[in-house]
Design a protein around this nucleic acid. Structure first.
Lengths: 203, 203
DNA sequence: TAGCGGTTAGTACCAGGTTCTAAAAGTCAT
DNA sequence: ATGACTTTTAGAACCTGGTACTAACCGCTA
């Protein structure tokens, strides 16, 4: 229930609900804040802060830091596995491959909710490199068409087809077509250098 | 100095140097280990563990977690600001722009230390979009050449030039040339849709 | 035998909490 | 104003995972 605090106290306090909301905001914008600091900001006792945290299910500072550390540690470990962007669900080396990539918050322009091009490229490029059956495969050149914008939440399915020189040295041509549902949203033609050639160029 | 412990103790211990090396390994492979756990693994007292940590300059568990949390927090924050990949150091809207991007661990293939193509593309693409003076700018198509591989630690300087339709509706052509030092390492031609046009395509 | 490096033990103290009990203060209906 | 009720505050005991410091001990060697 809302409470009207005595004006005599002269202390500006918020009703419970608003205070708890503010608490969430404060911790959100600085997860490293201690309860003691929060008492200063919210002008209530440390016990109130702690009751609020309990009600809201917000763990203590150390627990928050531990969670962040663990999360980042897991990420670092999986970053190594992230040689490929998107999940490859089918791969026939030197022939074709399919990968799925879901457009999430971090992939879109915040204003428009439209995926940034380099993520779409990254998926296609990764797949093109993966499909080449070679020690080292690097993108030499590419020709891209972004057919229509891809939005937050859409699942982008990339299909790669090796168009030339399968199993042979030098450069391979890979065509990648990306779809959302039935609709083609991206098309790219990649030239990939293979390791047996003398001068790999990139990727 | 090396010590030969009594065999009578029956306890297998390592000389100081090797123990400290092992300590580093253990903390390295699991940064969340407590001193107490380390006493179990290394069969020495907790004081020895702590002396070792001091000598080696390894902070306590909580400090380690805090550092990891802070590091990851900074990353998350910079990801948010990462509407543009690379630091833009010069921008003349509808004319030209320059950005710098340093190739770090997370940008390279671990095996070859060569930057993955999509990062180089991301820098160029971001710059091409940024240089267009419009509400919404999306990549419609692109034509890329990865001239030579870019390695870990190299600073990639991308220069973008608007080639057509400056300030006018429809689509703009942007050429991006990326250099390491004097050497051109990447070249891309982008077609960018501007918001005043009816159907933006991507980026 | 004294000295030295390395190890261990123990105590006091710390931050940043949790858990629990209890009391005080504010609010509302009657 | 009174009693019931929510909300806030206080305080003490306890916890983890340490730091800081003092003191002792062990094994070896000069």
């Amino acid at each position: 229930m809302e409470r009207r605090y005595k004006e005599e106290t002269g202390i500006e306090r918020l009703p419970k609900r608003q205070r708890q909301q503010r608490l969430v905001e404060l911790i959100d914008e600085n997860p490293f804040v201690t309860d003691r600091e929060l008492t200063r900001r919210l002008k209530v006792s440390i016990q109130t802060i702690r009751l609020d945290r309990m009600e809201l299910g917000i763990p203590e500072l150390r627990e928050r830091m531990k969670l962040m550390a663990e999360r980042s540690y897991d990420q670092v470990r999986s970053l190594d596995a992230e040689e490929v962007i998107g999940d490859i669900i089918d791969l026939q080396l030197d022939r074709s491959g399919i990968s799925i990539f879901e457009i999430r918050e971090e992939h879109v322009f915040s204003r428009t909710q439209i995926a940034r091009g380099h993520h779409i490229f990254a998926q296609a490029n990764s797949l093109a490199v993966a499909v080449i059956n070679d020690e080292i495969a690097l993108t030499a050149s590419a020709d891209l068409r972004f057919v229509r914008p891809i939005h937050l939440g859409e699942k982008c399915i990339a299909k790669a087809y090796v168009r030339s020189n399968p199993g042979k040295a030098g450069r391979a041509k890979v065509e990648v077509l990306s779809y959302v549902g039935e609709e083609m949203v991206f098309q790219g033609n990649f030239i990939i250098y293979r390791s047996d050639d003398k001068k790999p160029l990139d990727s």
